Amino acid sequence: MISGTGTTATKSATVTVSVNVLPACTAGTTTSGTTSFGTLNFGTLYYLNKTIRLIGQPNAGAILVQCASGVNYQVVLSTGNSGNVAQRYMTGATSGQHVNYNLYTDANDSIVWNNTTGVTRPGTGQPEWIPVYGQLPAQSTPIVDTYTDTVQVTVSW
């Protein structure tokens, strides 16, 4: 039996591993290419003689935003049918009559959610649901109809 000592050669080198994280955000739920935040639905009402308040919930009027940590973002809401954030209204499908409402950034309905300053927050890297506070003020009850409005949500970062 012949035994010998063998020598082992080794060589070390490095491999650089990197990732470039961009300032990015996603918003809403996308189905078949359409992004939505759901419907802020005041329900079925018989009379509008008292103020009705509503808080948007996930997939039902709340706004879902996910931004990379450290990325500040802003959410603004358009005027809808009225052309005026201070006086939003829903329009009847067949009557053309209006039901007044507005959208707020706070539960006290003291800050109208507008199309210029809106809501600004820092991204955390996690999904964040931002509630939209809706209010139907007491008003004359219009004729029976289905009243709707479409408000554009814009998320900027």
Rank of each mutant, 00 (worst) to 15 (best):
V71S: 12
V21S: 09
Q152P: 05
I52C: 02
T105F: 13
T120M: 15
S95K: 00
T146P: 00
T116N: 08
T29G: 13
V132K: 06
N20A: 14
C67T: 02
L22V: 12
T105D: 09
A13E: 12
H98L: 04
A9T: 14
S82P: 12
Q66E: 13
I63D: 00
G4H: 13
S156C: 07
N72F: 07
N59A: 11
T8L: 15
T141P: 11
T31N: 09
I52V: 15
Q66A: 08
V85I: 09
V65Q: 01
T34H: 07
G38A: 04
N114C: 07
T124F: 10
D109K: 13
V112F: 04
T30E: 14
F42Y: 07
N20G: 04
G134L: 06
Q57Y: 05
E128F: 03
N49D: 12
F37R: 05
N84I: 02
Y133N: 01
K50P: 04
S32P: 01
T34Q: 15
Q135Y: 06
G70F: 05
T91L: 10
Q152H: 05
R88F: 01
V155H: 04
G6H: 08
G123C: 06
G123E: 02
R121P: 06
C67S: 06
N108W: 11
T141K: 11
C67L: 10
T148F: 03
L22Y: 07
S32W: 05
T116G: 06
V132I: 12
G33L: 08
A13I: 12
S140I: 11
H98T: 14
D145K: 03
G38N: 06
R121H: 11
N114I: 09
T150H: 01
T94C: 04
A24P: 05
P131L: 13
S32K: 12
Q97S: 05
V151F: 00
Y89V: 04
Q87G: 11
A93K: 12
G83P: 09
